[in-house]
Design a protein around this nucleic acid. Sequence first.
DNA 1: CTAATTACTTACTAATTAGTAAGTAATTTA
DNA 2: TAAATTACTTACTAATTAGTAAGTAATTAG
Lengths: 190, 190
Amino acid sequence: MSLRTKDTKEEILIIGKQLIQLVGYNAFSYADISKKLNIKNAAVHYHYPGKQDLLLSLLTNYISQYKNLGTELETSSLHSLKKLEKFIDPYTQLVDNNSICIIGSIASDYNTLPNAVKIKIAELIDLVIGLVEQTLRTGKKAGELNFTIPARTQALLIMTNLAAGVQLARITGKQDFVAIKKSILQHLKT
Amino acid sequence: MSLRTKDTKEEILIIGKQLIQLVGYNAFSYADISKKLNIKNAAVHYHYPGKQDLLLSLLTNYISQYKNLGTELETSSLHSLKKLEKFIDPYTQLVDNNSICIIGSIASDYNTLPNAVKIKIAELIDLVIGLVEQTLRTGKKAGELNFTIPARTQALLIMTNLAAGVQLARITGKQDFVAIKKSILQHLKT
DNA sequence: CTAATTACTTACTAATTAGTAAGTAATTTA
DNA sequence: TAAATTACTTACTAATTAGTAAGTAATTAG
């Protein structure tokens, strides 16, 4: 076992994620990544042979992180509104960083992506919708949340508010996202 | 005055619009347009010297169309829900065409666009939000619509439901967009 | 009828793209 | 300690990109 001072593979993934959120999948190149890390573009190809390999790794990471969040929320004794806030909070950070969420970014580029990626992004979206849906369902059953439409539809409304909320707020200003976030939570209160 | 059998300039704009909605601004090239119209890529540059000129023309068109729609809706005696349906209906078509709306598409690419385009897209978004906001306000005053949050926030919620709704539905299926649309209108009913 | 204008094509350039093949220094394994 | 592996660099290629300059055929204007 060695003391690694660098973890280029991981750093590439972090930069890649930032670039997708900042400018989109089709607007960044391996040169952008290599310049930021002071390595050669071939080094990026060494770790991720093609751009789609990088994206697949990113999506796989997201899937495992959201699976963890799902388990955490299911076993947690937090109030459902707090659970939802836990899900929503990262989106506020995005607006501050002039960025949009991975799902919204990749969804916009969907038709340009190789099939393997399409399948993975669908898996991620299903997972995230399911996570919100389940939180809503549990919260309603516990009398902590109030909504009348099907849980999946309510989850879709929240997801779309957030995904497009960060997209719009980057242009019209953060206060619009703040208003959206507040409304989502207010609307669910009993 | 001549009988024009071709209007290449207009056709370029139509193809450009379709491509932006289908694959996004950064994923199409002048070659894509010229191939579809059986002309040379230099002919596209003749009509729109740069890609940004094309996009600016497109946005200018949208702005004038939405201004017309705004006037139409203001002077119309239609029930407010019908007015909103008139606004929402085109989005359903997008899902059928495997496409997303211009605003959502361009908003995702926002950080990669030249400043002149950024200004124009902001103008378009303000216009569209204003249009929905005004329809909501008038509808509420007339007792035709019911909502408790500020009109602008309600407009933002609807806009984000639609913009991200088509993005998601392209991946998860049309029925998700149908559910979203139905919920938006149902929620506003008195 | 001539000159100008329009709407292109031909032919190109410079930059950037994703990606590869071969080499190398340092580390790890057997 | 020799062999293999890891993590790169050097050096490149083929394709695609946005964009341009010069030429041309057809139409239009004076």
